[in-house]
Design a protein around this nucleic acid. Structure first.
Lengths: 222, 222
DNA sequence: TACCGAGTGGGACACCTGACCCACTTCGGA
DNA sequence: TCCGAAGTGGGTCAGGTGTCCCACTCGGTA
């Protein structure tokens, strides 16, 4: 019989999922996938690994998702949706100057990176793979657009809060922030040189400060 | 009999490799691997795809390499060894100022990126995967150290050629150059926004110029 | 000339992967 | 009370993967 022993209304219903809706299951699978991706990398992100992490059966996976590719898309979308920079807002409020605010923001991100390097590395791997997949590459683009929006918000907040203006268009500077962030991430992931990362962060902040000028200057110029 | 039909001393010895030494075969496989990696990505970089690209049999692969991992290591080492920035030296000589030289160097790299995006993307994928592999992660670190050295050389040349000095340590600025380069690469690969890349490049150059000062200034300070 | 080792070919193996299927259980509503 | 749909479990399939092996051919040397 084999599969007939489903132990129907058993008392011992060990760890099997007690009837979860498909949408909720998608969320659980997404979370499990992100965990596997962070811990073991994209190469180990198989349907079986995800299902094992979530404690489900393989069939439950294909009940929630049509394909692995669809799951990957949802993972990217989930990362876009989840706001991980919420903590940065608090840091900004405490800063005494624009430069201090920028430094706090950069250090805040780097703390996140150091706390969970696999997470950032996994997202990098996933993004690169998505760019190779026709259906997923728009999502990768959207992900970077989101990063830009977050960076632009940050820069705008710094400007208004500390009475300064940016010399270059906000969107361009936001792109610079994203590029600097990614660049620092890649370098540290490869070399794991903490001291070098700190010095690099200072240079990055200096680069941004160089694009800053007092608000009065523009008003006087009018 | 099947495999007995090796068509020994046939006239028609179509495309099969006519007795290549193991070391030379390694080079050919490396080259083929880099091509597959650029064109189809890391996920498609299988032993079979590599030997197909090189026009070899699968057995030849494991005669030259003990494992796929060993090949990946050789690919990284080959990229480190191959100097792709040779053309940049010419660009530097024509520049009339330090800023123009830096701009020419950045634009030179970006032209390389735009000409063969798969190449840069493939290297990113490979590096990330190497960082997940115990035996390969030192090579990934060496790769980035090499990037830093190249960048430091560039910055040093600019300084001596245009009679300027860098405000920050050369090694730190080299790290900034590498980070900016990687960041620009990632952003453009994801969004493919050429105009935004040009604006970003200008900001990157400005960030470097901000760390520059005339050589006379330091001499006067003495 | 005989031979021995380097190089080559095709096939095979064991394993993993994504996808799927069918029998089954549960639950909410008619 | 019944019933259909949602959800679940295990097994299975076809294809791909890295690795290995054996039979074979060639080039140089004793």
């Amino acid at each position: 019989m084999g599969h007939l022993t489903h132990f129907g209304a058993d008392q011992e219903r060990g760890g099997q999922m007690p009837r979860i809706s498909a949408v909720e299951r998608r969320a659980l699978l997404c979370e499990a996938a992100l965990l596997v991706l962070s811990r073991d990398g994209l190469g180990a992100l198989t349907t079986r690994a995800v299902v094992a992490e979530a404690g489900m059966s393989l069939a439950s996976f294909h009940y929630a998702y049509d394909s692995r590719e669809q799951l990957l898309g949802d993972v990217i979308a989930a990362v876009i949706a989840k706001e991980r920079e919420a903590g940065l807002a608090g840091l900004l409020a405490e800063a005494g100057s624009a430069e201090q605010a920028l430094r706090a923001a950069v250090r805040g991100y780097l703390a996140l990176l150091r706390a969970d390097p696999g997470r950032e590395q996994g997202m990098l791997e996933l993004t690169q793979a998505a760019l190779r997949t026709e259906a997923l590459s728009p999502l990768a683009a959207a992900q970077y657009r989101h990063y830009h929006d977050v960076a632009a918000d940050l820069l705008a907040q710094v400007a208004t809060r500390h009475d300064v203006v940016w010399r270059a268009p906000l969107a361009d500077l936001a792109a610079l922030v994203v590029a600097l962030t990614d660049g620092m991430t890649l370098a540290w992931l490869a070399e794991r040189d903490d001291a070098a990362l700190d010095r690099l962060a200072d240079l990055a902040v200096a680069a941004l400060v160089g694009q800053l000028e007092p608000a009065l200057a523009t008003e006087a110029a009018r």
